[in-house]
Simulated assay, not measured.
Amino acid sequence: MANPAFTNNPAFNGKGVPAIPTPSADQLQQQFDLPSAPDPAAGAPMTVDGTVRTSLGTFGVLLVGAAIGWITVSLVPLLWIGAAIVGFVLALVNIFKKEPSPALILSYAGVQGVFLGGISAFYESMWPGIVSQAVLATFVVVGVTLALFASGKVRASARATKVFLIAMVGYLAFSLVNVGLMVFGVTTDPWGLRTGVEIFGIPLGVILGVFAVLLGAYSLVLDFDFIQKGTQNRIPRKYQWTGAFGIMVTIIWLYLEILRLIAILRR
Rank of each mutant, 00 (worst) to 15 (best):
G87Q: 06
A84R: 07
G243Q: 00
G14E: 00
G87R: 07
Q27W: 10
G113F: 06
A41K: 13
L254P: 01
F115P: 01
R53M: 13
G14R: 04
L261R: 00
F88V: 14
W127E: 13
L90T: 02
G196L: 01
Q228A: 15
V61C: 05
G192H: 01
F245W: 08
F96Y: 14
G205R: 02
A91Q: 10
I235F: 01
G43W: 00
T242W: 11
T187S: 15
P38S: 11
K153S: 15
L172A: 14
Q232L: 14
G43L: 00
R237S: 12
F122E: 12
L148M: 12
P23K: 00
G65T: 03
A103I: 14
L106K: 10
V111W: 05
V114G: 02
P23E: 01
A44Q: 08
W191F: 15
I202P: 01
W127N: 14
F139N: 02
D223K: 00
L104G: 10
S125Y: 08
V210W: 01
A2M: 11
L116G: 04
I262P: 06
V114L: 05
R237E: 12
A83S: 08
G192R: 00
T231H: 04
N9S: 14
L259C: 02
A134N: 09
A150Y: 05
Y171H: 11
G110Y: 03
I207F: 11
T250H: 00
V17Y: 03
I262L: 12
L181T: 10
W253Q: 11
T138C: 04
L215Y: 01
I68N: 05
S55W: 10
V114Y: 03
N178S: 05
K229E: 08
K229I: 06
S120E: 09
G192M: 03
G117A: 09
I20A: 14
G143E: 08
L92A: 15
E257K: 10
S107T: 03
Y123M: 13
L28M: 14
V52F: 11
E198Q: 15
N13E: 07
M182A: 09
N178G: 03
S175V: 11
Y171M: 13
F6L: 15
Y108R: 01
V131G: 09
G196K: 02
N8G: 12
L222D: 07
I199Y: 10
V131S: 08
I264H: 03
S219R: 00
W241K: 06
G243E: 01
R266P: 02
K98S: 15
G216N: 02
A109Y: 08
M1C: 11
Q27Y: 11
M248S: 09
L165K: 09
T47S: 13
D189C: 03
L104H: 10
F139W: 09
T187L: 07
S219M: 14
D223M: 04
Y123G: 05
G60H: 02
P128R: 03
E257I: 10
I262R: 01
G201C: 02
I202C: 04
W80C: 03
A103F: 11
T22S: 14
E257S: 11
V48Q: 05
V221C: 00
A83L: 06
M182G: 12
F174D: 00
I85N: 07
A150G: 08
L136Y: 12
V76A: 15
R260S: 10
A156T: 02
F6H: 13
F224Y: 06
R234N: 08
S24C: 10
D33A: 15
L214W: 04
T22F: 12
P45H: 04
V154C: 04
D39R: 08
A42F: 03
F88P: 02
P21I: 06
